[in-house]
Design a protein around this nucleic acid. Structure first.
Ligand code: ZN
Ligand code: ZN
Ligand code: ZN
Ligand code: ZN
Lengths: 168, 168
DNA sequence: AGCGGTTTTGTAATATTATATCAATATTGG
DNA sequence: CCAATATTGATATAATATTACAAAACCGCT
């Protein structure tokens, strides 16, 4: 169990009118630092795809990204997107939401971690948790069964607070 | 939080030479009871697909099931399989492993639950947990953020005890 | 600047996973 | 048996992802 634990960093649901430009610029700056530190090349395509992923807090599908990228780069093809996504995933800059086949930006890419996600089935917004207690419960239970954890996927579907308040 | 909690039923990793025929027959019998109780029709196709899913404790992809089914039913097509899978999922008889786009039999279909899975990346075997502490941690953390949980996906990748003992 | 190795990108083709549609058949309840 | 409903058959297509190989860009070195 010699593995770094996340501090309990919360990125709760973003309010409807938070300064999202700040989310994007912070993400890009983090990406630059992470890439620099790892000697990875944060190329124009990769940067642009990361910006497109960060267009909102809703997970984006690969082909949506492709359609969007094609508007400004007409020779973009599936590999263009999938290679960029692969790079961003490898460097922890985005997460893949398995239950949606879609991708979201990571709010804390400078600390390696497994994401845990709250996914609002009404508005589509996703919030990432960095939750020790879930992580701990997972590792503890796995350990009891002699299982060595490499990574884990936690995706929680439900209704976010804001949607819960509006008329159903 | 008025939701039934599983008892902490463990279906730890099946040993290499457990009586697997018993797994299958138990699963089919449970399926009959569940279907009966819910007034659902456990047709020949559905039964056969469930048996095929239960061919092992490794998740099976839809098109593997299709190839297999075609051997005995040459007119089987993707909808044949996907419809059967849909039925089996709806009735809790199988689970979908999102991170693998594959399906495994449920060992405890008579109690409604979200699965939590240990997935061995070496041998491919999957074990289902019915773990209160993980479930609890998820609900607690979500609750703190005003999020109402509908379902959750927990998939833990790593090395199972048996694989961990063999030479790497 | 020139060179050679490496990484990234371009391009075409294809694989894999999943769904839509409508007709035919089987099952159920009356 | 009849009519309504559920299931299955059959075809087509959508959505997601990967393979393969060539061209271009980049990097470290001289
Ligand atoms: Zn934002
Ligand atoms: Zn993250
Ligand atoms: Zn078994
Ligand atoms: Zn189960």
């Amino acid at each position: 169990m010699a593995q770094a634990r996340n501090t309990n960093v919360i990125s709760a649901f973003p309010t409807r009118r938070h300064n999202h430009g700040r989310c994007v610029s912070t993400a890009i700056e983090s990406a630059e630092r992470v890439s620099e530190a790892r000697g990875a090349r944060f190329t124009a395509i990769r940067r642009r795809v990361l910006e497109l992923v960060w267009a909102s807090h809703e997970p984006v599908a690969a082909y949506e990204l492709l359609d969007r990228l094609k508007l400004e780069k007409s020779n973009a093809t599936p590999p263009t997107i999938y290679r960029a996504l692969e790079f961003l995933l490898e460097n922890g800059l985005i997460h893949r939401i398995e239950s949606l086949n879609a991708y979201v930006g990571c709010g804390n890419p400078e600390n390696e971690h497994n994401g845990q996600f709250l996914i609002c089935t009404r508005c589509g917004v996703v919030a990432e948790l960095g939750c020790d207690s879930i992580d701990g419960a997972v590792r503890e239970r796995a350990g009891e069964l002699g299982f060595t954890v490499e990574s884990h996927t936690v995706e929680i579907q439900g209704i976010c607070e804001s949607c819960g308040k509006t008329t159903r």
